[in-house]
Design a protein around this nucleic acid. Structure first.
Lengths: 161, 161
DNA sequence: CCTTTATTGTTTCTGTGCCAATTATTTGCA
DNA sequence: TGCAAATAATTGGCACAGAAACAATAAAGG
């Protein structure tokens, strides 16, 4: 192989660091609010567009309804969210924030993607160009350019060679 | 903000794609072998350096011992791995592959990190330089460059703004 | 109208991941 | 030597995440 193994290792280490920061960010939010990352995520979405149905929430989070049901159970148990059977469609459930939920989401810290957006915005043109090109290459060499981007969030099982 | 929102969005979409490919890769391996990503990962590590202790395995996977114990339980149940109490240090456990485990790991598909390494190796110098610089920037703007890189693998709870 | 089909939310099961506490053993120091 | 501290693996509890199966309800079609 032509390329320096150490340089490749550096690239992958940096990818790992990106993961780690986003994980840590989620954990910090957890410490600060007593809620987990996914739970805060739900509150943020509902704060923007309540009432909302379970299926729509799941769609926005790129998760299965079965998964968000569990998260909603815990949020409901903590008094952050209410479930109301819809009058129009009795299969559906309308999700709403309680006052407490609204209060919490107002103080919840920004999460990793916010940092990413803000950080990218503050780069010089030259720096940004290298990030832009680098990520494009990374996606390309994994044959991933054609994929519809999925969430920055799902549980990732990264196997390591 | 000075930067084009669409360009930022593209960068983040590509990061998402990288995640997705690695997730999908893990799932494919799962389909092909009947074992999960972490389980295959354990076999690959043991195939390279058996016997090995639980703590060393956990260290290499950047996971907690408590976590790999569960994975080992399932692998042992499937007859892929053996646990033997060490003679030298009776607290420790020596892990080994069974013949079946060795056979399986030989046929298990390469996983995402393998693709990443191979792909990086095949880039032109110019392409590689942009990936290298781009990832460095990405880690930097998350304030992550000082971190000891953690696993490309742990469960990631990515909150999304 | 009434049967078929689709949608909605839920439950159950498996497999991760973390932390905190426990047990057994070894090490190291007074 | 003897006892405290460190270490190795495990256990139990919680929170996600996916897949599969399910009941209730709605929509569509003959």
């Amino acid at each position: 192989m032509g390329r320096d193994a150490a340089a490749i290792s550096d690239v992958i280490d940096n990818l790992r660091r990106v993961f780690q920061v986003i994980n840590d960010s989620s954990r910090n939010a957890e410490q600060a609010t007593g809620l987990t990352g996914p739970q805060i995520w739900v509150l943020k979405i509902l704060a923007g567009d309540a009432p909302m149905r379970v299926s729509e929430l799941a769609r926005r989070m790129y998760l299965r309804p079965a998964t968000v049901v569990g998260i909603l159970d815990r949020l409901e148990g903590k008094g952050m969210v209410t479930r109301t059977r819809s009058q129009l469609d009795r299969r559906a459930v309308d999700l709403n924030l309680t006052d407490e939920g609204r209060a919490l989401v107002a103080t919840a810290p920004g999460i990793a993607q916010d940092m990413l957006v803000k950080g990218l915005d503050e780069l010089t043109d030259e720096q940004f160009a290298s990030v832009e090109e680098g990520m494009k290459q990374m996606a390309h060499l994994l044959g991933a350019e054609h994929l519809v981007p999925q969430p920055l969030h799902t549980e990732s099982r990264w196997a390591k060679g």
